[in-house]
Design a protein around this nucleic acid. Sequence first.
RNA 1: CGGGGCGUAGCGCAGUUUGGUAGCGCGUUUGGUUCGGGACCAAAAGGUCGUGGGUUCAAAUCCCGUCGCCCCGACCA
Length: 579
Amino acid sequence: MKVSQLLGERYKDRVADIESQNLMTRGGYMKQVGNGIYSLLPPAVRIQRKIERILREEMDRIDGQEVLFPVTMPASLWQSSGRWDSIGSEMLRFKDRSGADMCLGMTHEEAAVHMANNIAGTYQKYPFMIYQIQTKFRDEPRARGGLIRVREFTMKDAYSFHTSQEDLEKYYDRCYRAYERIYARAGIPEVIAVKSDSGMMGGKVSHEFMLLTDIGEDTLVICPECGYRANMEAAECIVKNEADEVLKPLTSVYTGEAKTIEDVCLLLGSKAEKSCKAVVYQRNEDDSYVLIFTRGDVEVNETKLTNYLKAAVHPALDIENANLCAGNIGPVELSTKATVLFDRSLQGATNLVCGANKEAYHFTGFTPGRDLPADTVYIDLGKAQSGGECPSCHKHSIQIRRGIEVGNIFQLGRRYTEAMGMTYDDENGNRINPIMGCYGIGVGRLMASVCEEKHDQYGPIWPITIAPWEVQICALRADNPEVKAEASKLYDELTKAGAEVLLDDRAVSAGFMFSDADLFGCPVRVIISPKTLGRGVVELVTRDKSVKEDVVLEDAPARIVQLIQQLKEKIWEKVPASL
RNA sequence: CGGGGCGUAGCGCAGUUUGGUAGCGCGUUUGGUUCGGGACCAAAAGGUCGUGGGUUCAAAUCCCGUCGCCCCGACCA
């Protein structure tokens, strides 16, 4: 490809806060069409095709069979699993000409079960996995971050079917390994797997693959010592309570206007971790109250709360009513309709400050083990916090980090096969619902994540395995006949040798050409100019500056092909063996 | 869905307070001079001022509606 022919413009000025969005917009990779909806230009499509190729190879390697599900589906398919009603407005629905309800696919468990049903009626077909690479539409309430969080995107989604939990787990591990290979091959071996909350997908075990970065939207809990890694949504919260030797009596103290934890603690000379607070939520379904008592410095993890209650909740809207309950240790009689829960952070705590069930008063000397009923149940509902105890090794302190979710794997169980009546006959002729797993990777998000991880202030530094072109030739002074001829010759020779080459043949100034080249981010750059030709050489540099050398003109094609090979091998060094 | 902001040339913006000939920078086209990190000179093209209505002699500007985009929050497979 010649830059003079390439569709797309590069821009000099910054256009977005998130670097991948900024660089990919400035570099002419994409153009926004609407909120969370983008068109991709040739460089981005080339990257996307290469990522898709890696995905296909790795899915095929774990015995996947590529299929294609429809984007538009009838409501009846989604009604058969119950999700037509359980999924909210993030699924885009519409009616066809006859008035029938339709929707755009946001995931394809239903379609996968529909396809597999009846054609996998005997245990002898199992296990098997089907996957597709296709467009999804999710009507996100708030798209942001360029390709990181969009409404329409390309996704690789895979669905496996098994006759036993053991078999699913074995396959799950293979897929886990395949994912590690995918990220390594795409040039970001830094991606880590974390335990995650399964959310509405159902099922028990699930992992998310995360790229650690400050702009990530997920919060992660990591133990740097033992390797414990979990999404904040799923992370256990363990805080230490050192019991005081002397237990003070429960005493009511006048605290006046002081209401917040900070104010009360300041007034009474206490610390947040020596206090107890109540947080009030309401169930979405009937607005009934849920009170959670936690240690003063511990936040409520709403995901864990939702999972425990098996009901969606929202922070209490009615502030007056909420205040009435908040901060009191004996709220049951105040609000009999409320569900009252005690967080594990209170277990073993002593001499706390807490609300006294009376306006302008607080208790001191509150010791849950003494002052609450003996049968009080303490549940883990807290948000893990930096410095807290690692739930795995129980020795070290956890860290809180941010990450982008670049993929996930779920053990789904029989949730869909049962609901949709998919069965197979086992050895004894019994009809059994197969067990499922599902495995997703967003292609565009992966591309943006690589950009996020691999760039400098001038542009992306694409790993050679997914770079839009492997080599860019910068022909400085393309108006010079000799430069033009040599650049063109090198372009032909490299292309013939199988390299993917971008030739900048425009008669623009050097600075302009180099800036554009930085935005293209090709791993290998060749510079030909009257100056280099005067010495009978071309300049060879890598985008990451690790290689910089002059090469004699006639040796250039061979050396460049060799360098490409070396860069590829470097990527493969970090790719683990497949299972 | 709540709060805030913005829609004027391909891109970025000024002009709106106080109504009166549509502006600037970048980019584009043509010609010339330059030439190793976003060069310079000259000329030119390019806009239903998001959109619908209203007020007015007169609306980018004032009023009402509507659509779209951005940011914060809620939400999120």
